[in-house]
Amino acid sequence: MVEERIREVFARAGAEGLLHAVPVVGRPQAEEGAEVAVGADEPVVIASVFKVLLVLEFARQVAAGQLDPRERVRVTAADRLGGWGTAGCADDVELSLRDLAFFAISVSDNSAADLLLARVGLDTVRLLAGELGLDRTRIVGGPRDVLESMLAEVGARDEAEFALRYPALPDERKRRLSVLDPARTNSSTPREITGLLRLIWRDEAGPAAACAQVRELMARQVFRHRLVSGFPDEVTVGAKTGTLPGLHMEAGVVGYPDGSRYAVSVFARTRELAASRPAVDAAIGATARIAVDFLRSKGV
């Protein structure tokens, strides 16, 4: 069975994996309801995959004339969270709202995402999830909320103190952090994430212009080590990664030259609480390919 093959690939990489794959635009002989599901309805931490929903809400507000995408924002030292993009800059940066959206998706810039969330509103992002029927998707806050919860739980006053305390914690204590618990942080299910992507790719998640903007930004993501690694060069991938200690994930849509499109979401958990696991990243691409190949073999 295809599900067993997927589980075996993750097991060889030292991980447990959940996956959902479904056609977005199938071939003419597509079978209605076709899917590949491995734990597709289990709750999962979505980490930075949440930024897809955030940027979709931003794009909808721009399309509705509620926001000017050219509005300028200054990213200061107080806004920096570390990592990619403006989050790791040494000096203040000024850019537009639409460039915040670009950085939030393309390089998973946490500071950009936080500032964008402050502008569009946390409540509106939550309302959007409900409007789209994502009943099991839970949004508690942005990257700064995640960081502050980690600092509080470890008893650190700032990131520097956290960096000193965290490595000394036993793994059992680390695993109890709220950021790794779907019941206490941003979470969803693999099925709901592919459902969100299908709506975006079908122009059903809002105005066509808003959906197109999200698709274009996801196609510009710079990270190529997960979903992209499983597919040949002629296949396009628009996706968003997410990473936390012991959690590796990516959700996206793969497109073939024949016009067919498939939404795939993959969530992997490892025993070791490391943020970098190349074998697991490769397994995400390999299992996505297995799932999509299965759907295509059935004429979907």
Rank of each mutant, 00 (worst) to 15 (best):
E94R: 05
L115R: 14
W84D: 13
D145W: 14
D92A: 14
F103H: 12
R144M: 05
L134Y: 11
D114L: 04
S108E: 09
C89L: 08
A129H: 09
D114P: 03
E71R: 14
I139V: 15
L132D: 07
A87E: 05
V93A: 01
V107R: 09
A104M: 07
V120N: 10
T124K: 13
A77N: 00
R126L: 11
A104K: 01
D123I: 00
P143L: 01
D135R: 15
F103L: 15
R72I: 00
R119C: 02
R119I: 10
R138S: 13
D135N: 12
A118C: 00
G141Q: 09
R126V: 13
A87G: 15
G82L: 06
S108K: 04
L115K: 15
C89F: 15
G88T: 07
C89A: 15
A90E: 14
V140L: 15
D145C: 00
D99K: 12
D92V: 06
N110L: 02
G130C: 03
W84G: 02
S96Q: 05
V107Y: 07
A87C: 09
L115G: 03
G141H: 09
S111R: 08
A87T: 13
T76D: 00
L117W: 05
S106H: 08
P69C: 03
R98L: 06
L128Q: 09
E71S: 10
R72S: 10
L100F: 03
G88S: 11
L115N: 03
L127N: 12
A104N: 02
L100A: 07
N110M: 06
L116F: 12
